[in-house]
């Protein structure tokens, strides 16, 4: 049987030990929570890095597309015009003043046309910074370029000119999405009519592209992961928390609706 003093001593020591153990548990908890916070911050940084890398990649792709368009334009249009001008000028016979005058007039006309085409090209080069003027203008520029091919009947409704808000990163991705969709149509769809609608509603930006091409099996393409363009579109839409709705029917065509929280 313990004496009351011993019992009190034991009780006080035990209680003090318990009171000392509580801060120990608290420190362990803080340490674990802090570790969790650290992991979260690292994860966030890593996601931001991935996002930045993707933005950079998108920028490079947009620039590539621009350069390709310029190269094609220089080769197919301006180059041809200048060659023709050169040929016309070479064939001038100064002895025959009347014919020479006509040829010079023709050459001048060809040169004017070349200058006009070069101005258009300059606009396109400027288009690398096109998103700086707003997504509405960027989309318009892209559609203008498509219309110049003359291969498609375009039905356009672009309501994004007047939106007061902007998100440069998202604008770049949206522009690239449109470029990829158009590329896919040109390469695979065999379409004759393309309808492009863009609008802004309830803090969301909508981009709808409809064409009357040969269509494709969306589920099969998605499952096989063969459509690199499609995968890239999906990845970029996920990155900006957007949604994609795609309907495709053989011989009827494809409709793509993209919904992006904006800005």
């Amino acid at each position: 049987m313990q004496s009351p003093t011993t019992q009190v001593t034991t009780l006080i020591i035990l209680a003090t030990l318990i009171f000392l153990l509580m801060p120990v548990f608290l420190i362990i908890y803080i340490r674990l929570y802090n570790q969790h916070k650290k992991n979260h911050v690292i994860e966030k940084q890593s996601m931001q890095q991935k996002f930045d890398a993707e933005i950079l990649k998108t920028l490079v792709e947009v620039q590539d597309q621009t350069m390709q368009s310029i190269a094609t334009e220089l080769h197919d249009n301006v180059g041809q015009l200048l060659s023709l001008t050169s040929l016309t000028l070479n064939s001038i016979n100064l002895a025959d003043q009347e014919k020479a005058g006509k040829k010079i007039e023709n050459s001048l006309s060809l040169l004017s046309k070349s200058i006009k085409e070069l101005r258009e090209l300059a606009k396109l080069l400027h288009g690398e910074q096109i998103v700086e003027h707003g997504i509405g203008h960027a989309i318009d520029q892209e559609i203008n370029w498509l219309s110049k091919t003359g291969a498609y009947e375009l039905k356009v409704s672009n309501d994004l000119f007047d939106i007061q808000i902007s998100s440069p990163d998202k604008d770049l991705i949206i522009l690239r999405l449109l470029q990829e969709i158009i590329n896919n149509i040109i390469k695979h769809a065999q379409a004759t009519i393309i309808q492009i609608d863009t609008y802004f509603s309830d803090d969301k930006l909508f981009l709808k592209v409809k064409e009357n091409g040969i269509g494709f099996d969306y589920d099969e393409t998605k499952a096989k992961k063969t459509g690199m363009g499609l995968n890239s579109i999906h990845k970029r839409i996920d990155m900006i928390n957007g949604k994609l709705e795609l309907n495709s029917s053989p011989q009827i065509g494809t409709t793509i609706l993209i919904e992006i929280p904006y800005p």
Partner: peptide, 10 residues
Amino acid sequence: LFYYFGGTII
């Protein structure tokens, strides 16, 4: 915390 909390009982 250790000092002041641990000293509570005593």
